[in-house]
Amino acid sequence: MAAPETIRSASRPHISISGVSKTFQGRQGPVQALQDINLSIEKGEFVSILGPSGCGKSTLLMLLSGLLPVTKGRIDVDKKHIDGPNADAGIVFQQDVLLEWRSALQNIMIQAEIRKSNIPEARERARQLLKMVSLTDFENSYPKELSGGMRQRVSICRALLHRPPLLLMDEPFGALDAMTRDQLQIDLLRLCSDNDMTVFFITHSITEAIFLSDRVVVMSPRPGRIERIIDIDLPRPRRLSMREDAKFIDYTRELTGIFKSLGVFREEY
């Protein structure tokens, strides 16, 4: 467990979500997206939120980023009450949201420009990040010249440029093919390994959640609630072959069972 890349700092609550509910005004009256969410995340933890579509997991991420306000309850990140955009966090969406008019490097650098950071220093770090995801030769390429996987890697580098203490990822690999996805999971773990960074990762892939996380938070739909939290006790660094380990398969079975009991999977035909 104590591989050099996983030195996690001692337990101190980094994120605290307490009693959070979120209600949207729909066409036919209010729609409750989240109901009474309580969750506390430690610094350096990799937490996945796993659930079917419509369980409000993306909404939870939006609340955590401060881009949407909570209806009820309270969120604190690093003892700071979140009541507006949390500019400390890095954020990655399912769509890469790269700016078509900027090269890969410039896309990462927008982060520094907006934050008015030291530009040469930031450029150095941007190049380092690109190197870590094997995109050194593409720093001057425009997004339309990159594949979907490459684009998403650039968008992850952009989110990491300012060394955010918290990385928010909303189904970042959801639009990629399975093989690209495997590679990007590894890339992500590599990027996270030398950071004391907390990752809040939204996914609807059971395997992905187990493979990446320290903890998997299972959510049930309508209204979104936390159904179960499962600790993933697998050694780091994680390797793709671990997905065939008995322990990994046990986790898969357990999670599949939960979703079956929730009625997310129906097997009769």
Binding site: L67, P85, A89, F93, Q95, V97, L99, E100, W101, I114
Partner: peptide, 25 residues
């Protein structure tokens, strides 16, 4: 919408969002 969210998550001002995101787009 994601692009605007992204801008805001970086702490971009309204003017920055206009010049660096919306206008080039």
């Amino acid at each position: 919408r994601e692009m605007i969210y992204l801008a805001r998550s970086m702490g971009a001002s309204g003017l920055q969002t206009f010049w660096k995101f919306r206008l080039p787009q």
